[in-house]
Design a protein around this nucleic acid. Structure first.
Length: 227
DNA sequence: TAGGCCATCTGGTCCT
DNA sequence: AGGACCAGATGGCCTA
């Protein structure tokens, strides 16, 4: 288990945030320079809402990794011009020639089919990676050339935790509104829309996800817990 | 050099 | 039948 997995399993505790800033940069989780010290102090201090919607959080393109990650493809995407057998030095059962002419013809057809299947699969994986890039773009971590791009698994785990944290913050806000509405009901009731917000639950989260302070949401695959 | 992460190929299964 | 989805295998690149 590497450092990032460990961090994610801790959920968004203060320590985890500090660790994240070391690995993914100081603006991860809104802890960058744009965040005030008061916001930083609010982390897990009664409220479990460490995020502030800074511009950092939505900052631009992700392809910052010198590594060959999903965003920076090594090869052309399309079937035309793409030669998988040359681009990758991999064994292919369809790369071998057969002896008889009919077999050759048949394997050519099979090979053509195989290549089209490969191209389709490649396209599918590229779409998946594009979606992951889109997810990286909207979750709070540093997007800068000096910061390593989140791995796929880290992206998914971080996104899950972020969603849970947002839902929890929303729930807290709802409770606060309900409380305020109670206190002021005798004088000036809050607008109807806000009152509704205070009474209804939009997110069908399990109770455990919304109770407690800075709960660890660690519904993670067990393989990630292996050392 | 080992380990992590990734892209790609491949065959199997399921769905339309 | 063809396409989507999935998981295993393989090899390349990068970092500690």
């Amino acid at each position: 288990m590497n450092v990032s997995d460990e961090i994610l399993l801790k959920s968004i505790s203060k320590d985890a945030l500090l660790d994240l800033t070391q690995r993914y940069g100081h603006s991860a989780f809104g802890l960058g320079p744009a965040v005030s010290s008061s916001a930083r102090g609010a982390v897990c201090a009664g409220s479990c809402f460490p995020f502030t919607p800074t511009t950092d959080f939505l900052a631009g393109q992700v392809n910052t990794n010198p590594n060959t990650e999903s965003g920076g493809e090594q090869t052309s995407d399309d079937e035309d011009g793409f030669n998988p057998l040359e681009s990758r030095k991999k064994g292919s059962s369809f790369g071998e020639d057969q002896a008889s002419g009919s077999l050759i013809k048949k394997t050519k057809e099979q090979r053509s089919l195989r290549l089209s299947i490969n191209a389709r699969e490649r396209r599918r994986m590229h779409d998946l990676n594009d979606a992951l890039d889109g997810l990286r773009a909207v979750i709070p971590y540093a997007h800068s050339p000096s910061v390593r791009k989140l791995s796929k698994i880290a992206t998914l785990l971080l996104a899950k935790n972020y969603i849970l944290m947002q839902a929890q913050a929303l729930e807290e806000m709802r409770r606060l509104l309900a409380y305020l509405n109670q206190g002021q009901s005798l004088t000036s009731p809050v607008p109807a829309a806000l009152a509704t917000l205070g009474q209804t639950s939009i997110y069908p989260l399990p109770e455990s996800a919304l109770t407690g302070k800075c709960t660890t949401y660690s519904g993670t695959h067990s393989s990630l817990l292996k050392p």
